[in-house]
Design a binder for these strands. Structure first.
Lengths: 144, 144
DNA sequence: GGCAGGCGGTCTCTATTCAATACCTGTGTT
DNA sequence: AACACAGGTATTGAATAGAGACCGCCTGCC
């Protein structure tokens, strides 16, 4: 059953499967895909492109604290993975537009789910971090 | 409306909001939470712990190509964020068990959605990568 | 003509992070 | 005693991220 209802924990099954087939990094979608999603900028760029196609400098303005180098690289990565397409318009000064491919758009749903979770849990996570940093190591010495 | 049906593109709206409120990195759940999700190992560990609590060495065996150092650090990060809890059992050789907190379990749903997408799209992504690496730069010279 | 400035990047340099290795404490095993 | 295993820490070197300068091209602007 490749597609299970995502409410129980199909992840556990998935994980066992991955383990069973030797855990080849090349065959592991988590390692391949989530690494990119979590690339610190790529997911933000996907979201930025969700609304509309944008040009390079537009993206740079939209995501202010990304450097041009990282913007270029992240866009290349997304392009390589087929999530965004790059369109060069031979206008007077050639302008470049990036837009989500259908594949990239298909990622918006799952990504939105995760972001929604992130927003809902953010307060709790911040509280946990504060508690942890305050020296509450939370190391329960449970009896066996 | 904090919770929108995740089928259109609420992300676009979200993004505009983030931009509107100055894009503070501390206030941006994507930067704070997805960075951790994409931490190369953390999401894998969450999945590994989805099935059942596991001990340190068990996790190390379950995720073979993680080093002990990174395993320790990733678990610390997850613990700091309140996603996993650490339980020390004072058995003969003290054993340590890690398990998902309720917060961590609440992440399984969205994570499963993303992983499901990853698995469904993996073939397409690999194809796109192959095409890209084969020199198909996909730079459409579109007319204006 | 000469200068400023935007676009779409690349180049260089440094700071951070990853990852491998070695080591440590404590217990049990042989 | 020597060794292995659990659950880590310390150390070191390699890879990576990020900031910022720079470039070629073009467009005004004075």
């Amino acid at each position: 059953m490749p597609v299970a209802p995502p409410q129980k924990t199909p992840l556990a099954t998935q994980f066992d499967e991955w383990q069973a087939r030797g855990f080849d990094a090349n065959a592991c979608p988590v390692r391949n895909v989530l690494d990119r999603i979590g690339d610190k900028w790529t997911s933000l760029l996907i979201v930025a492109l969700a609304a509309k196609p944008r040009r390079f400098s537009e993206l740079h303005r939209a995501v202010p604290d990304i450097s041009k180098r990282m913007l270029t690289q992240s866009l290349r990565d997304l392009q390589r993975d087929g999530l965004v397409t790059r369109h060069v318009f031979p206008t007077k000064p050639p302008s470049v537009e990036y837009r989500l491919s259908p594949l990239g758009q298909s990622a918006l749903g799952p990504l939105a789910g995760l972001i929604d979770w992130a927003e809902r849990s953010f307060a709790e996570i911040k509280a946990a971090r504060a508690a942890f940093d305050a020296g509450d190591t939370s190391e329960q010495m449970s009896a066996a």
